[in-house]
Amino acid sequence: MTTMVEQDETTHEERWDLSDLVKDRRAELRLSLKALESRTTDTAGAPVIKLGVLHRLETRQPTIPFRVPELKALARALELPFGRLQDAAGAQFLGIDSTWSASGEARALVEQVARYTPKQREQLARLLDAFESSPRSE
């Protein structure tokens, strides 16, 4: 039996990053839920994400966290970069925010980055930039 990831409400507020991204992007593309479902098909032509799951996601009802194949199918269907869906899913299901370096080559996963002060965010950005510019061993 599959269970949902439970969040400790004392430490994590509910997040709807993936739900909102999917709903907003579907509206931009002017797709029905059925059309979105049909765009998530696998190589055999079967939908990777069913209509009911998409509906629950968009209406902020409990859903099982999406796995990589589902996020990839959704990224293709919504014509968005996979990383954007991955970041939104991490935020919604795990309370983790992605912080990127200026060039986009380095990323840190940080719990509740919104609670950081501007100075702490700047320090994090400098740390990422430092990793980017340091020589990499092979």
Rank of each mutant, 00 (worst) to 15 (best):
M1E: 13
T2K: 11
T3S: 09
T3A: 10
V5K: 09
Q7V: 06
E9L: 08
H12C: 07
E13N: 08
L18T: 05
L18C: 00
L21C: 05
K23M: 07
R25Q: 00
A35K: 06
L36M: 02
E37M: 10
R39M: 09
T40G: 02
T41S: 08
T41P: 02
A44F: 09
G45S: 12
I49M: 03
L54C: 05
E58M: 14
E58F: 05
T59E: 13
T59D: 10
Q61S: 13
I64F: 01
F66Y: 12
R67K: 12
V68S: 14
L71P: 08
K72R: 15
K72M: 11
A73L: 04
L74I: 10
L78G: 06
E79L: 10
L80F: 04
R84V: 13
A91C: 09
Q92F: 06
F93V: 02
D97K: 10
S101R: 01
S103N: 15
G104P: 04
A106D: 08
A108P: 12
L109F: 15
V110I: 13
V113Y: 08
K119R: 09
L124H: 08
L124D: 04
R126H: 07
A130Q: 10
A130E: 01
F131T: 09
E132D: 00
S137A: 14
S137H: 14
E138M: 13
